[in-house]
Nucleic acid binder design. Structure first.
Length: 434
DNA sequence: CTTAATGATTCTGA
DNA sequence: TCAGAATCATTAAG
């Protein structure tokens, strides 16, 4: 029921809706209302029907005639005006785009990551970010690692730019195409410049939303890349054998107090040439932290290792001393023998015997001779360094079996397998058991 | 693919 | 603030 009238109305509107002047005019000339209208509609239909019968030339001719009609521009103007007042104003109202905070964020991020920024600056900014992310200090080791990162980043950057360009080009092409089309059509139907403009705006919005997607996925890619390369955890590399050896040597030869001082850590880091990943210092700290805790947690498991390193250390010491003595070989050797343990909670005390309580000695042939000098050396070193536990004095260290043994730490193990040659310190000792 | 080893990070208590 | 403990995440070995 409702349909009918509305339809009718819209029909009537084809030519004159909303334009009082015109419809009045028509009405005036049209004679009696009902009949006149019906007649008009009939005419229109008739014309439409005849169009299909017309040849192309005929149609063109008519079109041309219409275009040339002197009333045409005026009519189009009026129609455009009407259109603008109705359709455009409605659409315009709802087109207030939301503030694109999102886009801003993306832009900022891309800029910060060096994807959308100036060409070279991007790379260095990323490198800086990388350096910062990995802890800063070391500096030197970053380049090799980050070149890969930078390469990938610039790859992303390149893709981003080409895509962006592509979109832009497509957008422009499409826009001009649409504009031409509309201009063309504006000859046959009422299209105001404003409308064209609006259309262009719509197109741009569409394309910019595509662009935003591009930006978003680029951001994601960068984030992934970042997390992959810069997250220290992911970057973990195992130390090489040599480095592990050096650290272990130190650890086991300072078993009584495996807390290297800052300098010692630095020294160790240098010796190990820890370059990968992170700040050397903290890497060493981490290593010792992990080592302590893991050693303590499962001494049995480390026994063999301990013995091995102890032996090694002893050998080293001997060699050194035989060469000439020197007390301080900077890093580990000294103290070759300390035996001890760092306190463990459950154990009461530390120190494994320096010498095996009984027996079996491991004395390598080499070891024997220089022991005395080692002792001296060690004493010297120890007193100098004084670093470790306050509780530990040289005498304690040397004291033979003083302490011990009972296993404070290692539960239950039996006495040593490796033992040192006589005098305490130099000895290899190592804890025992197994 | 599973698992052990291990470097790094995070949380917690002194 | 630091060491220890717990946990994460990756690597390497099987």
């Amino acid at each position: 029921m409702e349909e009918q009238p509305r339809l009718m109305h819209s029909h009537a509107g084809v030519g004159m809706a909303g334009h009082p002047g015109l419809s009045q005019h028509m009405e005036g000339t049209g004679g009696t209302e009902g009949d006149g209208r019906k007649q008009d509609i009939g005419d229109i239909l008739q014309q439409i029907m005849t169009i299909t019968d017309q040849s192309l030339d005929e149609a063109q001719a008519r079109k041309h005639a219409l275009n040339c009609h002197r009333m045409k521009p005026a009519l189009f103007n009026v129609l455009c005006e009407i259109k603008e007042k109705t359709v455009l104003s409605i659409r315009g109202a709802q087109e207030e785009e939301p503030p694109d905070a999102q886009l801003m964020r993306l832009d900022n991020m891309l800029l910060a990551e060096g994807v959308s920024g100036p060409e070279k600056g991007g790379g260095s900014a990323a490198a800086a970010a990388a350096a910062a992310a990995s802890g800063g200090g070391a500096g030197a080791d970053n380049s090799a690692e980050h070149s890969d990162y930078r390469a990938k980043l610039s790859q992303i950057r390149q893709i981003y730019h080409t895509e962006l360009e592509k979109y832009e080009q497509a957008c422009n092409e499409f826009t001009t195409h649409v504009m031409n089309l509309l201009r063309e059509q504006s000859r046959t139907r009422p299209i105001s410049p404003k409308e064209i403009e609006r259309m262009v705006g719509i197109i741009h919005r569409k394309f910019s939303s595509i662009q935003m997607q591009l930006k978003q996925s680029t951001c994601e890619a960068v984030m992934i890349l970042r997390s992959r390369f810069l997250d220290a955890r992911r970057k973990r590399r195992n130390f090489n054998k040599q480095a592990t050896e050096i650290l272990n040597e130190y650890f086991y030869s300072h078993l009584s107090n495996p807390y290297p001082s800052e300098e010692a850590k630095e020294e160790l880091a240098k010796k190990c040439s820890i370059t990968v990943s992170q700040v050397q210092y903290s890497t060493v700290s981490n290593w010792f932290g992990n080592k302590r805790i893991r050693y303590k947690k499962n001494i049995g498991k480390f026994q063999e290792e301990a013995n091995m390193y102890a032996a090694k250390t002893a050998v080293n010491a001997t060699n050194v001393s035989s060469h000439g003595s020197q007390a301080n070989s900077p890093s580990t050797p000294n103290s070759a023998g300390s035996a001890g343990s760092f306190n463990m909670s459950n154990s009461g005390d530390l120190f494994m015997s320096v010498q095996s309580l009984n027996g079996d000695s491991y004395q390598g042939a080499q070891v024997g001779a220089n022991v005395q000098s080692q002792v001296d050396t060690l004493r010297h070193v120890i007193s100098q360094t004084g670093g470790y536990s306050e509780g530990l004095t040289a005498s304690q260290m040397y004291s033979q079996q003083s302490i011990n043994a009972n296993g404070g730490w290692q539960d239950a193990t039996t006495p040593s397998s490796v033992t040192s040659p006589t005098e305490g310190p130099g000895s290899v000792h190592s804890d025992t058991s197994n």
